[in-house]
């Protein structure tokens, strides 16, 4: 029982972290129709800037948490203005390929400046203690902090999008960009703003995830494709879908890693007999398969199934 509770908390932390990335990505997608491959790279930049600001420049972890996302967001907006908009005229495939190249480039630039090694970016000391324990398992204060930050961002985002004037304009620009432009709003500027905010959100995720999951040049690559999976599963362009999918994937990977469900038990349960000499059997790999072994790839399986059977995603309204 204890372990289930702990897993629920851990899955929530990871799911909300995914949400901070996927919310920005899904906003950008629904507005501009661009699947931004470089989104996780902005997450990585957030972590590196957070490290640089908080430890080397000495403005503290909270200072980094505030300043680093702003830098990332401004950088994102500039890339939209001077890069993406240039490519936009050629169509969607070159746009996608542009962000793909950008992801490669950002990774190389990070390596050039910070090197290949994992950098010593740690939680601030005042959050680095066990807040409470469930059984033997300690829950660190930092995890609780991560939950609150993500929830605050989700609340803020929801408020801005549904209750403020700028949110209304953004929503309108999502569906009828031409009409909104005719009403005198500067749609390219809104696009740039949304891209900037989306990348800044990724930056926030980077600053708080950097100490917890490690800050190294491969961090964007390991998380990059899973963010795509999240927004595709949730439904492209749907904020609630992104939240639902993030939590689903967070819990799916957490529980899959925790429970040693073995294929051997399932197969014998189905009435098959385990071969005596494993190495001769063509199915040896099937027999030895366990759930933790495949846990991290389950989201991809989920995505393929969703795309085949429900292409608009869980809560999406339109097909990708």
């Amino acid at each position: 029982m204890d372990l289930i509770l702990v897993n629920l908390i851990d899955g929530l932390v990871f799911g909300l972290l995914l949400f901070m990335l996927s919310s920005g990505l899904t906003l950008i997608f629904s507005m501009m129709g661009v699947l931004n491959f470089a989104h996780a790279s902005f997450y990585m930049l957030g972590a590196y800037f957070g490290y640089q600001l908080s430890t080397v420049l000495g403005i503290g972890f909270i200072g980094g948490l505030i300043v680093a996302p702003i830098i990332v967001g401004v950088g994102g907006a500039l890339i939209e203005r001077y890069g993406l908009r240039q490519v936009h005229q050629y169509g969607h495939v070159p746009e996608l390929i542009f962000t793909f190249g950008l992801a490669l480039l950002i990774q190389e630039v990070v390596k050039l400046f910070w090197g290949q090694n994992q950098i010593p970016y740690f939680e601030p000391a005042y959050l680095d203690f066990a807040l409470f324990s469930v059984g033997d398992n300690a829950i660190k204060a930092y995890k609780v902090f991560m939950i609150f930050i993500s929830l605050a961002i989700f609340g803020g985002l929801l408020y801005i999008l549904t209750k403020t004037r700028i949110g209304m304009i953004i929503q309108a620009a999502l569906s009828y960009p031409k009409t909104v432009e005719a009403l005198g709003h500067n749609v390219p500027f809104i696009f740039m703003g949304v891209f900037g905010v989306g990348t800044a959100l990724a930056g926030v995720a980077g600053v708080i995830a950097g100490p917890a999951l490690g800050t190294f040049p491969g961090m964007a690559f390991t998380l990059g494709s899973i963010v795509f999976v999240t927004i595709v599963v949730g439904g492209l362009g749907s904020l609630w879908g992104a939240l639902l999918a993030s939590l689903l994937i967070g819990w799916l990977t957490t529980f899959a890693a925790s429970y040693n469900l073995r294929m051997e038990d399932i197969l014998t349960g189905l009435g098959m007999t385990k071969p005596e000499v494993m190495s001769d059997s063509m199915l040896q790999d099937l027999w030895t398969l366990t759930l933790p072994q495949v846990g991290p790839i389950l989201p991809y399986l989920l995505m393929v199934l969703i795309l085949v059977f429900r292409p608009q995603g869980l809560l999406g309204k339109r097909e990708a």
């Binding site: 699947l35 996608l96 494709s225 795509f228 999976v229 595709v232 063509m282 199915l283 040896q284 790999d285 398969l289 072994q293 495949v294 991290p296 790839i297 991809y300 399986l301 995505m303 393929v304 795309l307 085949v308 292409p311 097909e319 990708a320």
Partner: peptide
């Protein structure tokens, strides 16, 4: 949709290479 299915299958196949030793 096509692009995303290809990405998902690509990841799945790459993972299978390490799992299906036979």
């Amino acid at each position: 949709i096509f692009a995303m299915i290809s990405l998902g299958l690509g990841e799945l196949m790459a993972a299978c290479v390490l799992i299906i030793v036979v």
